[in-house]
Write a protein that binds this DNA or RNA. Sequence first.
DNA 1: ACGATGTCAATAACCGGTTAGATAGATAGA
DNA 2: TCTATCTATCTAACCGGTTATTGACATCGT
Lengths: 195, 195
Amino acid sequence: MASDSRPERTRDAARTKQRLLDAARDEFAEYGIAGGRVERIAAAARCNKALIYAYFDSKDALFDAAFAAHVQAHLDRVNFDGTDLPAYAGRLFDIFEDDPAVIRLASWYRLERSNGPGLPAVISANQARLEKLRQAQSEGKLTDRWDATAILVLVQSIASAWATLNPEFSATTAPDRTTRRLAVIDAVSRLIAAD
Amino acid sequence: MASDSRPERTRDAARTKQRLLDAARDEFAEYGIAGGRVERIAAAARCNKALIYAYFDSKDALFDAAFAAHVQAHLDRVNFDGTDLPAYAGRLFDIFEDDPAVIRLASWYRLERSNGPGLPAVISANQARLEKLRQAQSEGKLTDRWDATAILVLVQSIASAWATLNPEFSATTAPDRTTRRLAVIDAVSRLIAAD
DNA sequence: ACGATGTCAATAACCGGTTAGATAGATAGA
DNA sequence: TCTATCTATCTAACCGGTTATTGACATCGT
């Protein structure tokens, strides 16, 4: 698009907002909401701290905006396939391995927004996935040993198993990435395998 | 013991320390290290803020002490059985369900101490578990489809699957506790089942 | 000129940490 | 046993740095 190739102008609110969102994502992924510093975010975005309050309302609102944008990008990237869960788990695994900030951001969100209403985009995405799983179950393409919710929860948990290790585990020599990936895919396969 | 039944004295450093540790555990489980407030901890322990710095050195050190005590209690409570992993997963599940603070505290620790050296007690406990798993494998009592590390990571991840749901999932009607527990145990069983 | 965009510098609240001193309870001398 | 003294335990008030937030001012693009 032409707008993409326009020169870096000195003043461009849209670009500045995006820089702030990116910087906020990195800062909050590293330190969380309570630990994140608006000063650092502004510095990383190469703009003044006050702009945060001009474009977003508060530190909390900035987190919400950054997290929502991040989640939207995540949802767009991964495509859920209810009839091939091992492959889905493998893609999730790759995302977590390639960008550890994904898991960290989600973890902060879970801890610091535990009483929140939840993002509508995520809620509807979940419902769509559950529907796909139930569809696959009714067509006989997926085990009905458990209900769709349990399957989704278990698969996602297995996919993120290696990404949520505590510091104590990192010390031990973990298997290489290929082995870890295979373990995830294999585990999901066995989970949903027909008897 | 007689010392256990001694009356609540007005001044007792050991009891005060314990109250501080308990209050710190609750506060940090709720808000994390950066979000936790020493003022609230002191109030919850019904003592002055300065005592925190008399008995522990800093807010960070208080967290470390509270977390170490909490972990020790956890390690004492659960007994690992390398030859009956489904039962182990079931016990873990029960712990997480009965006391959500366990998972929250561990999550904060993982996020806010990600570069730390790790607790020696946990490291050695992990090594002991891995050794038991390898032993069970060499005796043919446990599948050697994956190495012991992968098995341990996968089992613990499955056991905590329901305890690490994001706010969006809580909204949907999750299965009841019995069903969730069965899903965990069954998933582990299938994971390690002989072909 | 003028609105959009961004800077500068201040401010008020917060928060971890400190200090000087008070008080309860133990101990010992008489 | 009584009481003076001592020490561990605890408290109220305070301090200085940090942090989110704001309002007045500057500057760019059109």
